[in-house]
């Protein structure tokens, strides 16, 4: 479970999060949508404890992140898997990237690690690519490697930041299907940021919309589609006329 209470964050004079409160129930796929520079990626970093809010409270599994130091935060972060918008893959081969958290955080044999990596690669439809270098692979493949790395330690919470940005519609849908299958298989709590509103609504249970640092909508997918709020309506239906 993830909960934010009246979270404020600014970079200098630029207010990025302005009193955001939301709750993501356990085993739910929560889509976070909104125009560019609305504060979505910053909100993810706040949830993962990578950024500390100026005020407000953030809870992950009922544990408040505010009072925790870096070492204690690392313990909470073990519960979270994160896919970054621009992959954030390391300068090592595919298998080493995916196995990275296992090697660093768990006492597993090399055989077990190799098995888990092979299973993840099978799951993200990239079997046999262990020795390839991510930099030489396509955007869709890098996203899938990122998904494999984010989920290999079987964290109960997974954050996906723009998992389909820059991908063609077919690959995008495959990624969404993968996110949904993973969530169903592991019963994880998932937050997804996506600019592809139509696509992400096909898998989301709940939706939140950020605009200028404020959460202007929080409800079910059906509520989002039926919303009469002009900004929500314009963004969800992709209309050119409206306040955005």
């Amino acid at each position: 479970m993830i909960r934010l209470e009246d979270v404020h964050l600014a970079f200098g004079d630029n207010t990025v999060l302005d009193g955001v409160s939301l709750e993501v129930p356990p085993a739910c796929i929560y889509a976070l949508i909104g125009p560019g520079a609305a504060g979505k990626s910053v909100l993810f970093k706040v949830v993962a404890g990578l950024l500390r809010p100026a005020s407000g409270k953030v809870f992950v599994d009922d544990e408040e992140l505010g009072p925790l130091n870096e070492i204690e935060l690392a313990r909470v972060r073990k519960k979270i898997g994160m896919l970054f918008q621009n992959y954030a893959l390391f300068d090592m081969n595919v298998a080493e990237n995916i196995a990275f958290p296992l090697r660093r955080l768990f006492d597993l044999s090399e055989e077990e690690i190799a098995e888990r990596v092979a299973e993840r690669l099978e799951r993200v439809a990239l079997p046999g690519t262990e020795h390839r270098i991510p930099q030489s692979m396509s955007g869709g493949q890098k996203k899938r490697i990122g998904v494999a790395r984010a989920t290999i330690a079987r964290p109960p919470i997974v954050l996906y930041d723009e998992p389909t940005a820059g991908l063609d519609p077919v690959t995008s849908q495959k990624i969404y299907d993968l996110v949904q299958e993973e969530q169903r298989a592991q019963d994880t709590t998932v937050m997804v940021i996506s600019s592809d509103v139509a696509g992400v609504l096909t898998i989301a249970d709940r939706v939140g919309m950020l605009h200028e640092g404020r959460l202007i909508f929080d409800g079910t997918t059906d509520d989002a589609k039926a919303s009469t709020d002009p900004a929500v309506r314009q963004f969800v239906h992709g209309l050119t006329e409206g306040p955005l």
Binding site: F84, P101, L105
Partner: peptide, 14 residues
């Protein structure tokens, strides 16, 4: 700038 340092922290690695 490519978020790899944040990725390390997100993976609970100092």
């Amino acid at each position: 700038v490519t978020d790899q340092v944040d990725a390390l922290r997100a993976l609970a690695i100092d």
